[in-house]
Design a protein around this nucleic acid. Structure first.
Length: 444
RNA sequence: GGUCCCGUAGCCAAGUGGCUAAGGCAAUGGACUGCAACUCCGUGAACACCGGUUCGAAUCCGGUCGGGACCUCCA
């Protein structure tokens, strides 16, 4: 398998640290509000990564954090006269229900900042002890100058950053690029640390969590390309300081999602929340996977309509295939894949192993639909039908697509025979009546 | 101002130096069909523009035009 590594900007052969296992960490949401469909892109993409690795036999340890301590949470809790805990719990529930809505797994490891305060404090203390961090009043900052590699991930040099910076100069900092590890505070939730009462900055949590949950360097660190700088750059700086490694062998970043060719904007009212999304989840997933994960993707009604048609067609073929086998009571037979389905399955895997080229994976699915329809129209063997079904199931599992099918009872099988008989007898009135029943049950 | 990305048919989208540039949707012409729905076969249509490197460029380099992102704790 080849993966594009954002750290080296190269396509690299993937070799897991432990054979047969993959460790993945993806930056999760700050739970102060509902997520929008742009946030859903990394959710769906990395869920697909996980499912593909599992499909080809790996054990995947998948971790994604929940940031439940943050200025936005504190400010909103104050404004609504509630507690940070209540607020974040509400949006954690909302987040997980949105993740489920887009048919992604929620059974992964979800560390929260509030459960990691001790680790974070310990981590910051180590940075101070090693002189990579310094105190100014009750605040603690990271000393960026000490890291020679700073800027390597995001391809920037420190001089450019400094001259082009629009950051308002924080006079407490030795260097404008230094970032906050701990912030002294007198409002909202706060914690007691040896260096003062306050709350942690955002950039330390992921490093501390990865350290604790995985206990060392991991295979893949993922997130949106918006996190490349400064968040991931800062994570690496801290990890180099404390652990002398850059956290992950492979860094993967997904591109942004636009709506009608423009970035989603709260002020323009163009944001679409996942909870408000009125699109079949299968269609939304197909859409999301229809563009390579590193490219930007554009959400428009026309494009979604396109994938709605695509999904209907796919589901239709699968349904016909399933029905045919179910009528023969051969749904559960296992079979060795025959042509052309063996080749289609191979194309699918080849696409996925080439830096998760899901658009080409979808092309394999389209080919499967076409071959299956041809098969159903003409002469075919159970072996061929079974092969098709097996490949369908594999692709559906990896892409997490869930077609609606109705499994037949013996009664249904009889009803279907009666329908065919009535048609043979040209008793169209009766045939149509039975057809209505079968359609009502979702069988046809 | 600094850094970077992108521009393939009406739409979506692969391909990143070498056969006649995948695939899908839409369009159009056939076929199948008791009626529906579904489906199958065929057809046309594309590398933003200009220059360069090369035996050979959608692919590499330079420029022009157009779109976008980051430099603000926005995936």
């Amino acid at each position: 398998m080849k993966l594009f590594n954002s750290y080296t900007n190269k396509l690299e052969k993937f070799t897991p640290i432990k054979p047969g296992e993959v460790s993945i960490y993806v930056c999760g949401p700050t739970v102060y509000s509902y997520i929008h469909i742009g946030n859903a892109r990394p959710v769906i993409f990395f869920d697909t990564v996980k499912k593909y690795f599992e499909h080809i036999g790996y054990t995947v340890k998948f971790v994604s954090n929940l940031t439940d301590v943050d200025d936005k949470i504190i400010n909103k809790a104050l404004a609504l006269n509630t507690t940070e805990k209540k607020l974040s719990e509400k949006y954690i529930d909302a987040f997980l229900s949105d993740v489920e809505k887009v048919q992604s797994d929620t059974n992964y490891i979800k560390p929260k900042v509030t459960d990691y305060i001790d680790h974070i404090i310990e981590f910051i203390q180590t940075l101070i002890d090693k002189d990579y961090a310094y105190k100014k009043g009750g605040d603690v900052f990271f000393r960026v100058d000490k890291i020679k590699e700073y800027g390597y991930l995001s391809n920037r040099n420190i001089d450019d950053l400094r001259s082009g910076s629009r950051i308002e100069v924080n006079t407490k900092k030795e260097n404008p690029l230094d970032f906050t590890l701990w912030k002294e505070t007198d409002v909202g939730i706060k914690f007691l640390a040896p260096f003062g009462e306050g709350r942690p900055g955002w950039h330390t949590e992921c490093v501390a969590m990865i350290d604790d949950v995985f206990g060392g360097k991991i295979d893949i660190h993922g997130g949106g390309s918006g996190l490349l700088f400064p968040h991931h750059e800062n994570e690496i700086a801290q990890s180099l300081a404390v652990n002398n490694h850059s956290i992950a062998n492979i860094w993967m970043h997904n591109g942004m999602l636009n709506i009608d060719d423009a970035k989603m904007s709260k002020s323009e009212g163009t944001t679409i929340l996942v909870k408000d999304l009125d699109v079949n989840p299968n269609v939304f997933r197909l859409f999301t996977l229809s563009t390579h994960y590193r490219s930007p993707i554009n959400y428009t009604d026309d494009v979604l309509e396109n994938y709605a048609v695509e999904w209907e067609k796919t589901q239709q073929a699968y349904k016909q295939l399933y029905l045919k086998l179910d009528l023969l009571e051969k749904v559960n037979e296992t079979v060795t894949l025959v042509a052309p389905f063996k080749g289609i399955y191979q194309s699918f895997k080849d696409a996925m192993e080439e830096d998760f080229n899901t658009p080409n994976g979808i092309t394999a699915l389209q080919e499967l639909v076409k071959e299956t329809n041809q098969l159903l129209r003409g002469r075919h063997t159970v072996e061929q039908l079974r092969s098709s079904l097996t490949v369908f199931k594999a692709i559906f599992t990896v892409f997490s697509l869930r077609p609606q099918i109705t499994k037949l009872t013996d009664k249904d099988r009889k009803l279907h025979r009666d329908w065919q008989q009535a048609r043979t007898d040209k008793d169209f009135k009766r045939a149509d009546e039975i057809r209505d029943v079968l359609q009502g049950k979702g069988i046809l």
